[in-house]
Design a binder for these strands. Structure first.
Lengths: 200, 200
DNA sequence: AAAATGTGTCAACGTTGCTGACCAAACAGG
DNA sequence: CCTGTTTGGTCAGCAACGTTGACACATTTT
């Protein structure tokens, strides 16, 4: 598991059994101090549980028809985001073990969704890219989620969207933030198709 | 994608192609059509993946030490949120099958984290509640996540938090929204301890 | 030549979903 | 009272996706 940030000890900050959720706190007492009452945090837990579940539900449905799972989607997503990514980099992003990745990556290669190319600088590397077939599936999954997220974004409005992004970023650990920054930067100049396609 | 959405937002990665976000255009008013470009949606996918993973990481760690998983946490969470909840209601909230629930619920009962009480009106029902031991564990998990979320909330600011909530709500399907509404309403007047504790 | 790195693979295991089938207790209505 | 439905429990089997440990191989680096 990457991104296991240092978590301070779980001090029982203001456990009162929940009754204080009803007494309105003096909210004006300093704006850098958010009053995160019990109920507010419970709500955050609920929102993340339900929201993430339904966010993934649409793509999961498509994947299930193809005998794939969410892990396959993640590979397609991040390979499509960074064509020519190495196995090691992908492992770092996903935060799983090599064996776990192999179980989804190998079928994807065998079924012609992903191609492996030998690295030019380092021939040990296997540079991963999507095939046209893989791109098509990834796009199909993307569009499904796009519509879902678009609806939520539209309903919430631009200001809310920006807030959503800020909070989600804050929920990420330092390692994930670094990964995200790397992903957000433009891919390192990969004009042509990858070299040395490996048939095997 | 420009990163680091600090207080000011200099990045063009907004919902409308970018420029007017800097010009302070009447966002949210005139345009009901948000331009959700490719990269913006990719970012949303990334944020949800990384954010949700790291959000749960802290509690997962505690749970692993006790030989439990995320599913146990969910049961503790929702039972703690609605003491006296029936098995059927819990199934509806979690959206899993009875067998899947049984596999986590039964150990929780056996290990004295959850108690089952026979319903008064309908004696078929098993009203679930947390034992003191269960409440303690739930609170420990809660506090861990609380600190994590609190940090994100503080960094993002109150406005962002509200936006986060709106978007997450929008990501939920209609059924989940109904569940959430039910959860947000005050529990139906459950002053005393549950009746008729079932020893077996 | 030796060490480190990148990748692949085998074996075994755990958690958490699923389906299908069946059973038992309790309620509801004739 | 009898029947049908609801609520819940359970068994058996399966799949997806994560884990660890160990080992193998090619390649690069020292």
């Amino acid at each position: 598991m990457p991104a296991m940030p240092d978590q301070t000890d779980p001090k029982p900050a203001d456990q009162k059994g929940g009754a204080e959720a009803q007494m309105g706190a003096p909210v004006g007492a300093g704006r850098n101090l958010l009053f995160l009452r019990e109920e507010e945090l419970r709500l955050a837990q609920d929102l993340l549980f339900f929201g993430y579940r339904d966010f993934t539900a649409g793509a999961d449905q498509i994947l299930a028809e193809l005998g794939m799972g969410r892990a396959h989607h993640r590979v397609l997503h991040f390979v499509g985001r960074r064509p020519g990514i190495t196995v090691g980099e992908l492992l770092g992003i996903l935060g799983i073990t090599k064996q776990s990745l192999a179980r989804v990556l190998n079928p994807l290669v065998e079924q012609d969704y992903v191609v492996q190319a030998t690295g030019r600088n380092d021939r040990r590397q296997r540079l991963l890219s999507l095939t046209p077939k893989g791109e098509a599936l990834e796009r199909r999954l993307f569009e499904r989620q796009r519509e879902w997220v678009m609806r939520a974004y539209r309903e919430a409005g631009p200001v809310a969207v920006e807030g959503f992004r800020r909070v989600m970023r804050g929920l990420m650990g330092p390692e994930a933030r670094a990964q995200l920054e790397r992903l957000e930067q433009p891919a390192p100049a990969r004009p042509g198709p990858p070299p040395l396609a490996r048939t095997g």
